[in-house]
Amino acid sequence: MIPLSAYVALSAILFMTGLIGVLIRRNFIVVLMSVEIMLNAANINLVAFSHYLNSMAGQMSALFIIAVAAAEAAIGLAIIIVIFRGKMATNVDQINILKW
């Protein structure tokens, strides 16, 4: 039997990888992809716990998370397109119109 902590550790590593990606990358789309990695890591965690606690709640949550991820990806990419139309750039540090 594979201990639960292995899955949790794996989930943690993947999460941190995704987090680092969010912080490091300049390309906005890759940042969004890193967010996807984080979500997947959360999924692994949930499903592992669902399995070891003999409950279906984890799988349910994972399902919903996949749905939400889809929606979020769509919206994010739409925003990228809007920005791309205006500035012809997708680098994160070139988009600073939130500064007053």
Binding site: V68, A70, I75
Partner: peptide, 16 residues
């Protein structure tokens, strides 16, 4: 979640 997805779709269309 169904409504949520609907909102997302509409939002994406409006934005893009």
């Amino acid at each position: 979640v169904g409504v949520f997805l609907l909102g997302a779709v509409i939002g994406a269309i409006v934005l893009a």
